[in-house]
Design a protein around this nucleic acid. Structure first.
Lengths: 204, 204
DNA sequence: AAAATTATTGCATGGTCTGCAAAGATTGAC
DNA sequence: GTCAATCTTTGCAGACCATGCAATAATTTT
């Protein structure tokens, strides 16, 4: 990776960090883009070369779209053959993304603090979950061979994202929390979901 | 209702209608609050006495919070005793609101057009569904007697709202669509949900 | 008809975000 | 190392959104 690219990454992170730090200190309304940019030693105009909105700088990159390789494996029926287990696998990749675990954890913890301090930001997170939901529905349709006008996959994806949102809420992102714990919590949520609404399906 | 109140209602509707009409004609970015206000024969400043944002004028009032009476009945275990059926009943009241059916249908149809034309507006709708979700979770917790730290109701509510969102997407709001049809579609969605995830709950 | 209440309006202001063109930094070729 | 090509940063002007405040206008109450 060349110098140019490295500098861009650094600027991006500096802007994100400044945005998060200042917002946690003073609150969203009390921080201007101008101040964030100054903190990162770039002009206000440059801020908008990196992020379309102030909110975008705060939310970071997750939840991003699922990992492409995991998605392909899911579509062809893998890795285990069990629908829900494979769904969980592909979803986890969209949440934990590429960074190392410690960094990611710290990001998540900060974002959680941000949500509590500034509930307006929840809107943006919901929008991102919605995007993932749409892509997930397409993957489910591919895997199950549903016809394009069948909207069943959309519903299944929507419920799955509800589970993911719920699980995210429950995680505390501490050092003792392992990847396996995350999976276990998602599994528990899917099981609860099945218990709550499964019986209704059996009703005539 | 006095003259003052009637005028306010009229102004509110005029602003909403103007906002929707202009946006469908030209697109959201090509319509300013100034133009909307002019169309409704009030000052720009007055627009903001009625709506906090341009988006708010476009989205109208739904989905609003569930009807208070329906909520109370749900909490005490009514009206039928079947959890999902009663859930549907209370949810329907939060969607169809108070207006007469024909007016409401027209509103819904326009809003659906708006969503297609301006996907940015979906964010706002998602935020509203999220609010309903929170209140719904509280109602579910009350009905089932769950303890305050139990987050099961949140998950059940999230899934229920996923079903509602999905059903809203599917409705076409035509004249031939009866209230009974709406309920049938919600029921079908809940059944599909149960079929998709119910089996997973039975897995060891 | 006067007084009290509430709504509308204009004005000033601060903030977000965009387009554009000039200046500055990095890259790759030679 | 120099030069040209490419990409990034920056300043500036400008449109628009949104808020606070104080004056004016309309309605309601007495």
């Amino acid at each position: 990776m060349g110098l140019r690219e490295r500098k861009k990454q650094a600027t991006r992170r500096a802007l994100q960090d400044a945005a998060v730090r200042l917002t946690l200190e003073r609150g969203l309304e009390k921080v201007t883009v101008e101040e964030i940019a100054a903190e990162a030693d770039v002009s206000t105009r440059t801020f908008f070369n990196y992020f379309a909105t102030k909110e975008e700088a705060l939310l970071g990159d997750v939840p991003g779209t699922p990992d492409e390789e995991a998605r392909r494996e899911f579509v062809v029926g893998g890795p285990t053959g069990d629908f829900v287990e494979d769904l969980i696998t592909v979803l986890i990749t969209s949440l934990v993304s590429t960074d190392d675990l410690a960094t990611r954890r710290e990001h998540m913890r900060l974002r959680k603090q941000l949500m509590e301090r500034e509930p307006q930001l929840v809107r943006g997170v919901l929008a991102r979950f919605h995007n993932v939901e749409t892509e997930l529905a397409a993957a489910i349709a591919e895997r199950t061979g549903a016809s394009p006008e069948d909207d069943h996959p959309l519903l299944v994806a929507a419920a799955a994202m509800a589970v993911m949102r719920h699980t995210m809420r429950r995680l505390h992102f501490s050092e003792t929390e392992e990847t396996a714990d995350v999976r276990a919590k998602i599994q528990a949520a899917f099981r609860h979901l099945g218990e709550a609404y499964g019986p209704y399906a059996s009703t005539d």
